[in-house]
Computed example of a mutant assay.
Amino acid sequence: MTGDSIRVAVIGCGIGGMAAANALLHRDIDVHVYEQAPQLGEVGAGVLITPNSLRLLDRIGLGGAVAAVGASVGEGSRYYREDGSTIAPILTVDSSGWNGMFGVHRADLLGALADAFPAERLHTGHRCVGFTQDETQAAVTFDNGREIRVDAVIAADGIHSTLRTYVAEPSAPVDSGSVAYRGLVPAQQVPWWPAGISQLWMGERRHFLVYPVRRGTLINYVGFVPSHEKTVESWSAVGDVDTLRKEFATWDSPIPRLLAEVTATNWWGLYDREPLTTWTAGRLTMLGDAAHPMLPHLGQGANQSIEDAAALSVFLAGAGPQGVPEALLAYENLRRHRTTEVQLGARANGRRYDSHFQDLAERDAEIAGSVPFRSWLYDYDAEAAALEALAGR
């Protein structure tokens, strides 16, 4: 590290936190990560890494690691009606034709990010319980009695963020009215399943998504179904396999055949928040789900947190200790509009996928016509946008 390098604490070592830590370290910033769990781990199943974030990971030397643990998702990916009739291709490339899409198990992705980061800079067993700041530094206290003093604090502590309360008024979770059953099936149990593609079936208030992970050895599925019960924001609540099978029993035959091989499933209560009007207070800012929790219907939760990480690293690399508050505001000003568009777009896509249309032909036309929006997502370069904004300050 350089002699005048700022000191940064990242609170939370999920995908967004570890992406930020690696991006900051890549720019020679003195960064440490603090995680409340006693050891690293990631629940859930698959996540799609799309071109807009893969290009950023590639630049800090992690693209190969993602490819090594993931499964390429490409040509042949399709949207269908519940009866199996084809609606449109799923876009898996950016406008240049580069296929930068991988299905990755969340644990594998977190492992790749953690393996690239120096172990001595990652501190588990640190649950944040307090935050203070003055004009020259910020302090974070933990339940183990430790206190750290740094130049900048990055809240990457998820949808239930403790640090959000120091930035914005509390916001209630917005219930989507649906839950997602999710899990994995070994590919060897379904040798007839097509390799290397993503498939999404849509029906009345339900949709079903499938794509490969872990080098194609596992098939990741997510079944979205309506729920009128108040659920928890959980990735790991145990679901009932028979209930899941009944929800899709009459759908296109590959789905019941796949679900016949499922022995265990988890469910996830789907919530987001209204977009925040601010992410930053002095030397504290947020990224990922702490700043912009979103529904999974665009597959952008992890990808937007990686974009956050890249942009944040650009602004902080150009800041000395006294310039941190200004740098964090510049990061927020760049990122907040885009992530709001993605949050709201994910909500709209959920309504689209779940067939809230009297005329399904209208819905199908919207799906087929979504390529420009997907291209807007996938073509974006968060690092280049941050460098341009920095040059214009």
Rank of each mutant, 00 (worst) to 15 (best):
residue 151 D to W: 00
residue 145 G to L: 08
residue 149 R to D: 07
residue 164 R to M: 09
residue 155 A to H: 00
residue 156 A to N: 08
residue 183 G to L: 03
residue 175 D to A: 08
residue 150 V to S: 01
residue 168 A to Y: 04
residue 165 T to K: 09
residue 180 A to W: 04
residue 156 A to C: 14
residue 177 G to V: 05
residue 181 Y to G: 06
residue 154 I to H: 02
residue 181 Y to D: 09
residue 162 T to K: 10
residue 149 R to Y: 10
residue 147 E to F: 03
residue 182 R to W: 09
residue 163 L to E: 04
residue 157 D to W: 03
residue 154 I to N: 00
residue 167 V to S: 00
residue 145 G to Y: 11
residue 169 E to V: 11
residue 157 D to L: 06
residue 156 A to S: 11
residue 179 V to T: 13
residue 168 A to W: 03
residue 146 R to N: 15
residue 164 R to D: 05
residue 140 V to P: 01
residue 146 R to Q: 15
residue 181 Y to K: 12
residue 141 T to F: 04
residue 174 V to A: 11
residue 155 A to V: 00
residue 151 D to R: 01
residue 176 S to R: 07
residue 147 E to P: 05
residue 158 G to A: 09
residue 144 N to G: 12
residue 151 D to F: 03
residue 171 S to Q: 13
residue 153 V to W: 02
residue 178 S to D: 14
residue 157 D to T: 02
residue 174 V to L: 14
residue 142 F to D: 04
residue 158 G to R: 06
residue 176 S to W: 12
residue 174 V to T: 13
residue 156 A to M: 12
residue 158 G to C: 09
residue 168 A to E: 08
residue 147 E to G: 11
residue 155 A to D: 00
residue 165 T to W: 13
residue 172 A to Q: 14
residue 176 S to P: 07
residue 140 V to I: 13
residue 172 A to H: 11
residue 147 E to M: 13
residue 165 T to E: 10
residue 173 P to N: 08
residue 166 Y to F: 14
residue 168 A to L: 07
residue 170 P to M: 12
residue 168 A to D: 07
residue 140 V to N: 02
residue 146 R to S: 15
residue 141 T to A: 14
residue 154 I to D: 01
residue 152 A to C: 08
residue 158 G to N: 09
residue 141 T to H: 13
residue 155 A to E: 00
residue 177 G to A: 06
residue 147 E to Q: 15
residue 156 A to K: 02
residue 165 T to M: 14
residue 171 S to M: 14
residue 180 A to G: 14
residue 169 E to R: 08
residue 148 I to G: 06
residue 144 N to C: 14
residue 144 N to W: 07
residue 142 F to I: 06
residue 177 G to Y: 05
residue 142 F to P: 01
residue 173 P to D: 11
residue 184 L to Y: 04
residue 163 L to A: 04
residue 147 E to S: 15
residue 149 R to P: 02
residue 163 L to D: 01
residue 172 A to R: 15
residue 147 E to A: 15
residue 144 N to S: 11
residue 177 G to W: 05
residue 178 S to G: 12
residue 163 L to P: 02
residue 167 V to I: 08
residue 153 V to H: 00
